[in-house]
Amino acid sequence: MLEYREQGFAVQLMEHLVVPTFVLDASGHVTIWNRACERLTGVRAAEVIGTKLHWSGFYESARPCLADLVLNGEDDLVDKLYLANRSETYQHGALSAENWCVLPQCGARRYLAIDAGPIYSPSGSLIAVVETLRDITSQKEAQTALETLASQDGLTGVANRRMFDQRLAAEWQHPAHLSLLMIDIDHFKPYNDALGHQRGDECLRRIADLIVSETRQECDLVARYGGEEFAVILPHADMQIALAVARRILAALKRAAIEHPCPSCPPLVSLSIGAACRSDRSVTPDALIAAADASLYRAKQLGRDRIIIGETEIAA
């Protein structure tokens, strides 16, 4: 009798917890779906108790929840199904993860911290699994914003030098073709001196947007390398692809027709572009940057407003 009362108290306690919680029995059916879980998901307990439809509170199509993975001993699926796996610090049999969930009934997208742990009988058999959830969307969004600030150039919105270095190092690990463009705005100092820093900043932003628009959105990285210099990492791109991108950038700038205010400079703002392609995996990332930089310097020497690959002038 005492054990029954204790069980009843435990169920009532779980029902009134402020933490969203649900419980599956050994067969995977929902036995508890507390009020906090109703408020989080918009799904009433009566809709899921006695069913295996607990997934419908969090996802638009059927897929395992963390409690299901505990129930079935499928720890190896956590990394596949969840954005973050925090299970390494938990006791054997319990799992912890984080994931974006769509919450179909509420029409909301929430980032949830999820914990699931087994409950065993005195004899050691699994009798239930408890899953608890915490809405940490605001923390995740704040973290994402900080990560963006850490990797983004504050003026132009493209990647900063730190992000450029990280991405180039990451791409270097893949054996595929890899090309690099170094791009410099010609005669930018007299432009800046004549019109002031605010107009100079506007020019930098406009050219950054222009470069981004002419690169492959799905894989290329445009970064502000420093001052008026930009860099474009072109994964899976041989020299022909790199050359095509560089030509598009020059053509787009000519269409933009940004007037240069200094009478001693050409009437329109132009770009010099140096290109390099990794042809040998023994070459280092620094060597690839140096090769593209040398081509850019050569473009400047030859009169600007052109593309140089090695010693070869491609376009003027």
Rank of each mutant, 00 (worst) to 15 (best):
R216A: 09
G50K: 11
L271A: 12
R281M: 15
G303Q: 03
V232Y: 02
R306D: 00
R110A: 13
E141Q: 11
A97L: 05
G154M: 10
K52C: 15
Q217N: 14
G8A: 07
L234V: 07
R304H: 07
I307C: 10
A145W: 04
P261T: 12
A287N: 05
M163T: 03
K140D: 00
N192L: 08
E171I: 02
A26S: 14
I249Y: 14
G200R: 03
M163E: 06
A290L: 14
T31Y: 02
A276Y: 06
D293S: 10
S27P: 04
A231N: 00
G8E: 06
A116V: 04
W33P: 03
Q152W: 00
D286W: 11
L234S: 04
G157I: 01
G274L: 07
T132C: 11
W172F: 06
T41R: 02
Y4G: 11
H16M: 10
D25T: 04
T41W: 02
I308P: 00
Q139T: 05
S279L: 14
E228V: 00
V48Q: 09
K300A: 07
A36R: 06
E259K: 12
R39I: 11
L234A: 07
K189A: 03
H260C: 01
R306L: 07
E171N: 03
F230Y: 04
A176L: 08
G73A: 08
Y4N: 11
I241K: 13
E98F: 06
D286T: 07
D209P: 02
G28N: 06
A256W: 09
G310P: 10
R224F: 09
A26C: 09
Y120D: 12
C65H: 13
Y90L: 15
L178T: 05
Y4Q: 13
A97T: 05
T215C: 13
A231R: 01
N160Q: 05
L195S: 07
R199Y: 06
D25V: 02
Y111W: 15
L95S: 04
N85S: 06
G50M: 09
L268T: 15
D305R: 04
A194R: 15
R298Q: 15
T137Y: 06
I185W: 04
V23Q: 00
V23S: 00
S121L: 13
A257S: 13
N99P: 08
A290K: 09
A46Q: 13
Y4I: 14
D184W: 03
S96Y: 11
S279K: 15
L178S: 03
A26I: 06
I183H: 01
T137H: 06
K52P: 02
Q143D: 00
F188H: 05
G50S: 09
P267V: 14
E15R: 12
A116P: 01
D79M: 10
E131T: 01
A292G: 05
A246D: 10
C265K: 10
K52H: 13
F230S: 01
L53S: 11
I308L: 10
